[in-house]
Design a protein around this nucleic acid. Structure first.
Length: 737
DNA sequence: CATAGCGGGTTTTTT
DNA sequence: ACCCGCTATG
């Protein structure tokens, strides 16, 4: 049945059904390219226009801030008016906003700081130090991952302690870390979610209040919600039961940060009256691309077959290119891109996806040489750059003087004579007197052992912070940022170091100042200065990589496959298609993780509309040494009829044997041990091994630790690679330079 | 107190 | 190859 209605006219019947369902919980299972964004925007417009819902009763969760902006605009266009007071944001932004108002219940101040990954790592290091634990033995990063994992599962440190999983040290660190965060009025990314859920659990009135406000909740990319996010949604929607979620479990790619596609099943349990609509018509890709995607994903035991179909025609075959060295792989991409531009494509129609950020360099270089404009999304993000973080840290301290991480960052940046010795005395005072760093600095003159120079430095710091605050209060955020750039002499410092970098640093600072002024003008006029600054800092903390993709830039986009989620491009290059890279070696030994890698590849493929180019490189540099590479197992999952092979004489369809030995031959004696792996397993890539049944073989990749290391080994006699535990093979000497 | 130089560890993906 | 923290030196 096709309904006739302005909001429904250009939708297919399944989309119409989803958009116009009367009420109650709805789950839309939306295959790749099936128009889920359309459905969401139309649904919101429909709620407002047809069901008389007030925009401020709607909470819509998107995966990026950019998607939120676009959704808001799109709804506005559909309704022919700008929509105000509708909450369209990411989980993290929405939680931050709620917590600004409510977190005082738990003792956080409303101006709490939001810590990114690197801030959190710093804090963990401090905690390790103060607990007298050895940071080189317990990696701060690793600890943070454990803490983060616990938080995503809503396990607080007390519960963590009770359960006493693993060594007590982790629990100790977790506890201190969390106490410090609270003392400093700071939250990490995971806290934003966890504390909100805890708040709803602990204070029923607060939950009731937000249930009342958000009578209608919509969630995009539902397959990537973690436990905290799931509970948040469930709690909010429990009362009015108007919950509309859209997702595709085959595109679930964030398990490493707690995402759980089983939230699909839980949805049915918690909302048994829910209705389900499946969208399986693809509007994005050619049938060639779609067939490849369907084949690849069907290799997953846990695939959720949606029988995607389309009528966009066959289009071009998928090219698979073998490069020889990353330079040539990148050259291939650049040349092909150039050719397509000559054929009428815009550089902005094209994107290069890779598994890891570290791969971007070669492609940047090649595109630069080909004189094609490009933009790298993510990688070393703007707000992560040293000089930018410094300025932001000053502003952060102005906003929240208890923010010890920010304060430690700027205390002697630029140098003002507060060196290790003085800082040591101050830190001792902090722990002895149990005061905050801010309080210690206020009485620095009375702390023994501090040099005159350092005392002066502390005073200078206080002065400059005062100045920034003054500018903020009289002239606003833009001027405050400028003050934090120039009055602190960070601008001077940025130029002074010289080199090509100097210019880039100055540009970054100029950009930061511009962004601050621009942000300022987007705020309501009656907001007090401190609150304006808080909003600015919050925005800076919560920008995501894809947020700064500029479609209007006319440039080829370079990004990780993760960042590419939700995007589409006429031409897509997926590069680095090698076993050990994609799928990543860390995932190969675990079937679940391997399936996640395959979903990731599925996401990559399904971004492309017209042309898909896959490429792999038969050598790879790790730590300065070349390593032989074999093509990704995923390439073999694409039927030959869809593929055209380009380049690489060694490439033989369906066989990795020739390429593996070719890779070894070309790198020859240059294959060297990767030190870290040697220490862990005693084996090296390139080692010859003997297996009781399969004979002699050569180690291609190693993953895992100690005696439990596993490897992919190529056995010439079998003409194939096998995965095995290294402990079951015997090493054979005689290989090497 | 600042800086240069060295040794050790290291990257998967991200809000 | 790169980043970080430690140490020796100015």
């Amino acid at each position: 049945m096709i309904l006739s209605h302005p909001l429904l006219d250009d939708l297919n019947s399944e989309q119409q059904q989803a958009v116009s369902i009367a009420g109650g919980p709805v789950m839309v299972v939306a295959g790749a390219g099936s128009g889920k964004t359309r459905v969401l925007t139309h649904r919101i417009a429909y709620l407002i226009q047809e069901m008389g819902v007030r925009p401020d009763a709607i909470l819509a969760i998107t995966f990026t801030n950019k998607a939120a902006r676009e959704m808001r605009d799109r709804v506005g266009e559909l309704l022919g008016a700008t929509v105000n007071n509708m909450w369209v944001s990411t989980f993290h932004s929405a939680c931050a906003r709620i917590l600004r108002r409510e977190a005082h219940v738990f003792g956080y101040r409303s101006n709490f700081s939001i810590y990114d990954r690197s801030d959190s790592v710093r804090l963990v290091k401090h905690c390790l130090n103060d607990l007298g634990l050895d940071a080189s033995r317990l990696s701060p990063r690793g600890l943070l991952n454990k803490i983060s994992g616990a938080k995503n599962d809503l396990v607080d440190y007390e519960t963590f302690l009770d359960r006493a999983e693993g060594p007590m040290e982790v629990a100790e660190v977790y506890k201190l870390y969390q106490q410090r965060l609270l003392q400093m009025s700071a939250m990490d990314f995971d806290d934003l979610l966890m504390v909100t859920v805890e708040l709803f659990g602990a204070v029923p009135e607060v939950l009731a209040k937000y249930q009342h406000i958000f009578r209608h909740v919509l969630v995009d990319e539902y397959q990537d919600t973690n436990r905290a996010q799931y509970l948040l949604v469930r709690d909010l929607a429990r009362k009015h039961r108007s919950l509309f979620v859209v997702g595709d479990s085959d595109q679930s790619i964030y398990a490493f940060r707690g995402a759980d596609y089983r939230n699909f099943d839980r949805f049915d349990d918690d909302f048994p009256e829910s209705r389900r609509v499946t969208l399986n018509r693809n509007y994005r890709s050619t049938s060639t691309i779609l067939d490849a995607a369907n084949e690849v994903i069907s290799a997953n035991l846990r695939a959720d077959p949606k029988d995607l179909w389309c009528d966009q025609g066959e289009g071009e075959r998928i090219t698979v290119h073998q490069g020889h060295g990353s330079v040539r792989e990148a050259q291939f991409v650049a040349r092909r891109a150039k050719k397509l531009v000559a054929q009428g494509y815009n550089p902005a129609d094209m994107a290069v996806f890779y598994r890891t950020n570290a791969q971007s360099r070669a492609f940047e270089e090649a595109l630069r040489r080909a004189k094609l404009p490009y933009q790298v999304v993510g990688a070393v993000a703007f707000y992560q750059r040293g000089e930018v973080k410094d300025v932001v840290a000053y502003l952060q301290v102005v906003s929240n003087p208890d923010d010890g991480v920010a304060l430690r960052r700027i205390i002697n940046t630029p140098r003002r004579g507060i060196g290790r010795t003085s800082l040591g005395h101050i830190e001792r005072y902090v722990s002895d007197q149990e005061v905050s760093l801010r309080e210690a600095l206020e009485v620095a003159d009375d702390i023994p052992g501090i040099s005159t120079r350092a005392r002066k430095g502390v005073k200078e710091l206080a002065d400059v912070l005062g100045r920034i605050r003054g500018h903020l209060e009289s002239e606003g955020v833009g001027r405050a940022a400028e003050s934090a750039i120039f009055d602190t002499r960070i601008a001077e410092m940025a130029t002074a170091a010289g080199g090509i970098e100097a210019e880039a640093r100055s540009d970054n600072l100029a950009e930061l100042s511009r962004v601050a002024y621009e942000f300022e003008s987007s705020l309501e006029a009656d907001l007090p200065p401190m609150e304006r600054l808080g909003r600015f800092l919050e925005g800076a903390s919560l920008v995501s990589d894809p947020d700064n993709l500029d479609e209007g830039a006319g440039a080829v986009a370079l990004m990780t496959v993760h960042s590419a989620k939700g995007l589409e491009f006429p031409v897509v290059f997926v590069v680095g298609m090698q076993d050990g890279l994609f799928p990543h070696e860390r995932s190969i030994s675990d079937p679940d993780e391997l399936e996640e890698e395959r979903r990731l590849f599925y996401v990559a493929i399904t971004r492309s509309m017209e042309r898909l180019h896959l490429s792999w490189d038969d050598t790879r540099m790790v730590g300065g040494y070349p390593y032989p590479q074999v093509p990704s197992r995923f390439l073999r999952e694409i039927p030959d009829r869809l593929v055209e092979k380009v380049g690489g004489p060694a490439f033989q369809p369906g066989s990795n044997a020739s390429t593996a030995s070719a890779g070894l031959a070309t790198s020859g004696g240059a294959v060297r041990p990767f030190r870290g792996i040697v220490r862990q397993s005693g084996f090296e890539v390139g080692d010859r091994v003997r297996h009781p049944d399969w004979g002699l073989g050569r180690v291609l990749t190693i993953s895992g630790r100690g005696m439990r290391a596993s490897a992919t080994v190529f056995f010439p006699d079998l003409k194939e690679r096998r995965e095995l535990m290294l402990s079951v093979v015997e090493r054979v000497s005689g290989f090497g330079p």
